[in-house]
Design a binder for these strands. Structure first.
Length: 214
DNA sequence: ATCCCGAGGG
DNA sequence: CCCTCTGGAT
């Protein structure tokens, strides 16, 4: 775990991310709030690419919780069998869809508490929906962000909640909304878990971790 | 701390 | 073969 970087360095890091990619987007395909919620719930311990492959056909048939109930758990499983943890995910998506229909008029709620009360929706998934759909500066800390935050010193922490707090505390406000996607894309393509591409890194000169990977 | 779990990469 | 992938519930 690297030492906490100072404010000016962090500001410079995000200024570079912004310059390189002013409007960073996620890579999880979806057509509305409901399909976003489902896609994020399916993405646990899975790659976006794998989730997109499965939802491509699924979201052609199903884009609402009511339609998901009509589809049924068995046929949902057929769609998502190629994704890890598919039994739990299918059960959760069905249960969550039922709750949306029965308690939320088929809409996706905009409060963290309501989102997190849904089966299969924890802090991370709720934060992604709050950030991507409701444009709230929520910091969903996934495996990539946890790694990048700790390697770089942008927001070191022993667990994901600590890193979330550190991002809230140390990332300048104007960068908070897009911080999630900048960090995750950086983690996915540059600051990779296995073979980090430090030679191609935009913030190489501001990071201590690179020294170990030249 | 452990289980759930398949695909893709090296 | 081993590691990793936008975690959550128990």
């Amino acid at each position: 775990m690297a030492a906490q970087l100072d404010y000016l360095t962090i500001h410079e890091i995000f200024s570079r991310f912004h310059a390189a990619e002013p409007e960073p987007k996620g890579e999880l395909n979806h057509v509305n709030a409901y399909t976003l919620l489902v896609a994020v719930a399916l993405s646990a311990q899975a790659t976006d690419k794998g989730v997109n492959k499965a939802t491509e056909a699924l979201f052609r048939e199903v884009t609402t919780p009511a339609a998901m109930l009509d589809l049924g758990e068995e046929r949902l499983i057929e769609h998502i069998r190629t994704i890890g943890l598919y039994r739990n995910k299918a059960k959760n998506v069905m249960a969550l869809s039922r709750i949306l229909v029965e308690q939320y008029g088929g809409e996706v709620p905009s409060s963290r508490a309501a989102l997190q009360s849904l089966p299969g929706v924890g802090r991370k998934t709720a934060n992604v929906v709050l950030n991507m759909w409701w444009r709230f500066p929520a910091q969903a800390v996934d495996t990539h962000i946890f790694r990048v935050a700790n390697r770089t010193g942008i927001a070191p922490g022993r667990d994901v909640v600590a890193v979330e707090r550190a991002i809230e505390d140390h990332v300048p406000a104007p960068f908070q909304l897009h911080a999630h996607h900048w960090l995750i894309l950086h983690g996915r393509y540059v600051c990779r878990a296995r073979a980090p591409a430090c030679r191609l890194c935009l913030i190489r000169d501001l990071c201590e971790f690179e020294e170990k990977n030249l």
